[in-house]
Design a protein around this nucleic acid. Sequence first.
DNA 1: CGGCCACGAACTGTCAACAATTTTTGGAGA
DNA 2: TCTCCAAAAATTGTTGACAGTTCGTGGCCG
Lengths: 245, 245
Amino acid sequence: MLRRAANPARTPRTASFVPLIQREIERMIGTGELTGGTRVNESTLALRLGISRGPVREACRALEQIGLLRSELNRGFFVREVSTKEALDLYDIRAGLFGTAGRLAAAIVTTVQLRGLEELIGEMDAAIEAPDIATFYTLNNEFHRQVVVASDNDKLIELYPLLEAELHLFRRRGLVLPGSMRTSNDEHKAILDALRQGDCTAAARLLERHILAGKARFLRTLEDDSATDARRGPLDPRHLRSKDR
Amino acid sequence: MLRRAANPARTPRTASFVPLIQREIERMIGTGELTGGTRVNESTLALRLGISRGPVREACRALEQIGLLRSELNRGFFVREVSTKEALDLYDIRAGLFGTAGRLAAAIVTTVQLRGLEELIGEMDAAIEAPDIATFYTLNNEFHRQVVVASDNDKLIELYPLLEAELHLFRRRGLVLPGSMRTSNDEHKAILDALRQGDCTAAARLLERHILAGKARFLRTLEDDSATDARRGPLDPRHLRSKDR
DNA sequence: CGGCCACGAACTGTCAACAATTTTTGGAGA
DNA sequence: TCTCCAAAAATTGTTGACAGTTCGTGGCCG
């Protein structure tokens, strides 16, 4: 929580409030403290953080650009809700970018990085045995992140987490199916092999398919949900237009 | 130019100033009115647009997020300069995304859209004959845009132009080599064929390679420049780490 | 003549206030 | 009791002002 108790002076000027507020709101969204569709009350938030509305508005404007908030004229900022169509779109984009990351990484990945990925795979195996879904989820994210970092493409390293964050705004969480963890980690192992051998084409293909497989699993959970939970109604047929491959 | 002369009332409230300012700054950057590295003076800009600094700051904060501006504490906002490394990184990202666009588009592209692409290719041929580099440049951009639109991936349609805009911040413009126009349009024809046949894999591969070919041409112009214009010094060896394919 | 420091101007970061708009509340009428 | 409407409250969009920082200038000292 942001407190200015330790700094009664008017303006610290050693750091701007805006990035702090931005990260704070991101955190609130991440933890579910702010849930999709809810309105961000500028005054309340400013009061709670002990600052005025100006910096809060700037932070919200920044968050609007990266897709975490949306604005309505004279009504302020709202936490974005990601539709099923958008979530599926994001999977396709992530697939393309992740494939690119693999193509780049395979050419320049270091042995240290390879060892790191190997360790993560081992820990994921352990999490599968436990079974510990939460830990697997974290490790899986870290594996993806490290692959992107290995690409040494700074723009990609910057862009990829934004897409992940936006995907997390999809209304239903916990998209990791217990049964799919083993399959997923097998894919990780194949990816590691391709990276180790410096096979750019294979790495790109495997990583792209890894995300698209995730998309397929995601689609399946959606269908399951709409079957068991009839209140939500049938799936929008538009979703089926996004063909895989 | 934004003027409020027609609206002397204090607050119109039929639209927020922020998006208008944002687009105005984008335009100024696009036309080169604001060039890379220059400082964005909030007071001056606000005065010129006839509004106060608040909305200007919000617009700048938004532009910071999409990579057109950067901020320094107590020094304000500056027009970003895109380094050679970043430009090359952007080419790789665009290649991956463009390939994704092609994979998606091939499955659902309409005959109307195909006809539109075909016409653009024809016009580009004419521009090559003229020769009219500026027109070719515009048509080429439009061709790329239409392929992305054909993917029907809204997030991609939103994301792709941002990357284009950022690439335009690279310090040297006019990266279209006269000699490469014909090659480039030949690639367009192959892409159109793949799309017409609904061949997702071929379309993805061709589009990805089309951008990577652009990256290769880009690299060549850099080398030419550094050879003829020795004052800039030799290329940073890091650039060579981004291997193609 | 050159470097250093102090002073003033310019500018940023933040705040408090105001007007316009939206939302809520309360009650009158059917 | 429910619906509709008007007034009050709450909230946003914008503004002008203030404090602190950075930048530029000129004088002083070596």
